[in-house]
Amino acid sequence: MTAPTTTTERTGYFAPTTRRAALDLLADGGPTTVIGGGTLVYPRLARDVPTPRRLVDLARLPGIDRITTEGHGVTTLGAAVTYGALARSPQTPMLLRILAAGITGGPQIRNQGTVGGSACYANPSSDVPGALVALDADLVLADASRERRLAAREFFRGPFATALKKGELLVAVEVPDISGSWGYAKLKHGGSGWPVATASAFLAHTGNGSISAVSVSLGAVAAVPVTVDVPPDLAVRAADADPSARTGLRDLVEAADPDWWTDEQADATYRRRVAGAVAARALSRALNGDPA
């Protein structure tokens, strides 16, 4: 496993203990691989996928693995909060708790893989981007001179591409506390496979309990997550398996016409065709109050 090393490329494993030190390491703009959990980086290193061999591990940064509730309607997830921590913490927003418990690879992966690492890797087939868009989360990005917040729908730019700039680090994810009902559904073809489609359904209620707005954010089906607003009456009928409403929902999803994703799990046509069905499952779970 020898890496091509030029005179300008630095190598080595760094585990800074302050954000300042981490950002100093990134500040020269040299090729660097940032490690959140490591579950995505190490397979790349093992396969000689071109990956910078200067490794900056965030594991020792203070607070990077914390889940905090600030008391004004925002839950802050440190970038290196693991799926296991998300699944166990009562502070975790419910949608993310469901998502975390359903990550494949066993407790070993759930105890190591991180929400921030998955966001930065931006694999279209991952659970995380779609859920962060559904939650209207903000990503907190820091460089040596400032910190900025970017909405998840702005952060994901394409397959394996984000708005993260050179020298910038994702330090946290902020999830607003939105009151409503959630449902999550995922289609995958193997127990240990990546998702083919995910759907996060959200229902907003009026004061008298009727449904005022419905949206479904679809992940894993397109280059970036896609959110579809669904008329409440259509959502209710589709969740009840009314065939014409199912067709209507599918048409609505297909009409969003994103850049449908193809990978070894499924091609774009397949994903386009199943997205509506997975959306209907998520809606049904949200409506039945049985989110997972």
Binding site: A15, D57, G105, Q108, I109, Q112
Partner: peptide, 13 residues
């Protein structure tokens, strides 16, 4: 005490 897959863990950690 936590199970991890050691092919994914930097020894520095």
């Amino acid at each position: 005490g936590t199970p991890l897959k050691s092919c994914l863990v930097p020894v520095g950690r």
